[in-house]
Simulated assay, not measured.
Amino acid sequence: MAYYYKTVLDTFWSEHIWLPPNTTWKDIDPDVESNIRHADHRHLFYPLPMSVLMLLLRYLLEKYWFAPVGVSLGIKNSKPKKAPDNLILENAFTLSKKWKHKQIQGLAKQLDMSERQVERWLRLRKGQNKPSTLIKFCENAWRCIYYIFSFTYGLTILWDKPWLWDINECWTDFPHQNVTSDVWWYYMISMTFYWSLSISQFFDVKRKDFWQMFIHHIATIVLMCLSWIVNVFRVGTLVLLVHDCADIFLEAAKMAKYSGYQKICDAIFALFTVLWIVTRLGIYPFWIIRNTSIEAPKMVPMFPAYYIFNGLLILLLVLHSIWTYLILKIVHNSLNAGQMEGDIRSSTEDYSENSKSD
């Protein structure tokens, strides 16, 4: 069994797949050269326990900082009214959250209730697990604070890095590139955050794009891990920087909406929309993906893993395109309504129906 396991690993991590021609794993070993600190694949395990600590930090901040601030802004932590206990209706609700008219009629007759009473019970049952506005505010506050920190830290450490100003420097001396301490922390903290999101997503407010976000988190983690292993971390830092920028304003717009500052929400959301399009559909494809697809093959010999990296980058672009459509749809609806009435990662399946009550 151990032999087959080793064979599978050796085949998967074949140097012919993951490394440029005439390069071996020993060549990029962290300790092979004294003047170059290669990325150490063993460090990829650090973000796992670090994500637990980050979740603990988030809990403390939400409880002792974000929640009190939200309450001071007038956000209520009221829980939705609970539906009356009814075993038959509860069993029917467990089987299907959406009832057809014939099913409502049948349940009404069976329970000697009016159709209106059954429909009201269904509405209450759907809404009783809906998180309070304060909980949603705290979640957005946590992400907003993280994105501010991540973008500021990333821009600060990359300011004196040559590849920020000349993206072709991402391939200079590749794969023998030195990992500085600041870049190491930038990668580790970013992976920690995405691991924590992948975990907390199953406990946070359920959103319409749950699976798109889950795919996004996993694709980001895989891309960061692989880029770290084969020393393509310079491109990785640029991808992180471009992604964090607009998200600050998305979370801030949600916070303003939940706080009741609709005009501020509209202004921030407008700024977010512009930044999103500029960074996700402008800078990202025409600066980063263009370089990895057109310029990189001219500077470094191609190898199979290159196509894996580029494929994951393009997958993220596809997700960006989907979200851009949703953003523009919200902008269109907001212009017709006179205010922003939702967000691209709406809170529940019924959010669009109840957004005015938030």
Score class of each variant (00 low, 15 high):
Asn178Thr: 14
Asn178Met: 05
Val179Lys: 03
Thr180Asn: 14
Thr180Cys: 13
Ser181His: 14
Ser181Phe: 15
Ser181Gln: 15
Asp182Ala: 12
Val183Lys: 07
Trp184Thr: 06
Trp185Ala: 10
Trp185Gly: 10
Tyr186Gln: 15
Tyr187Ala: 12
Tyr187Pro: 00
Ile189Glu: 11
Ser190Leu: 04
Ser190Tyr: 03
Ser190His: 09
Ser190Met: 01
Met191Arg: 03
Phe193Met: 04
Phe193Cys: 06
Tyr194Gln: 08
Tyr194Thr: 03
Tyr194Glu: 04
Trp195Ile: 10
Ser196Glu: 03
Ser198Leu: 08
Ser198His: 00
Ile199Asn: 01
Ser200Gln: 13
Gln201Gly: 13
Gln201Tyr: 01
Phe203Val: 14
Phe203Asn: 14
Asp204Trp: 11
Asp204Cys: 11
Asp204Ala: 10
Asp204Lys: 00
Val205Gly: 02
Arg207Ile: 06
Lys208Leu: 10
Phe210Ala: 03
Trp211Pro: 01
Trp211Ser: 09
Gln212Gly: 13
Met213His: 06
Met213Val: 06
Met213Lys: 06
Phe214Ser: 06
Phe214Asn: 09
His216Tyr: 07
His216Lys: 01
His216Ile: 03
His217Ser: 04
His217Trp: 01
His217Cys: 04
His217Arg: 07
Ile218Pro: 03
Ile218Gly: 01
Ile218Arg: 03
Ile218Ser: 03
Ala219Lys: 02
Ile221Asn: 08
Ile221Arg: 04
Ile221Ala: 01
Ile221Phe: 01
Val222Ser: 00
Val222Gly: 07
Val222Tyr: 09
Met224Glu: 10
Met224Asp: 04
Cys225Trp: 05
Leu226Cys: 08
Ser227Ile: 00
Ser227Ala: 13
Ser227Asp: 01
Ile229Glu: 09
Ile229Phe: 01
Ile229Leu: 05
Val230Glu: 13
Val230Pro: 00
Val230Arg: 02
Asn231Lys: 09
Asn231Asp: 02
Phe233Lys: 03
Phe233Ser: 12
Phe233Met: 13
Phe233Leu: 09
Arg234Thr: 06
Arg234Glu: 02
Arg234His: 12
Gly236Glu: 02
Leu238Lys: 09
Leu238Phe: 07
Val239Pro: 11
Leu240Glu: 05
Leu240Tyr: 14
Leu240Ala: 13
Leu240Cys: 14
Leu240Ile: 14
Leu241Asp: 04
Leu241Cys: 06
Leu241Asn: 08
Leu241Glu: 03
Val242Lys: 05
His243Glu: 01
His243Met: 00
His243Ser: 04
Asp244Glu: 04
Cys245Pro: 05
Cys245Leu: 15
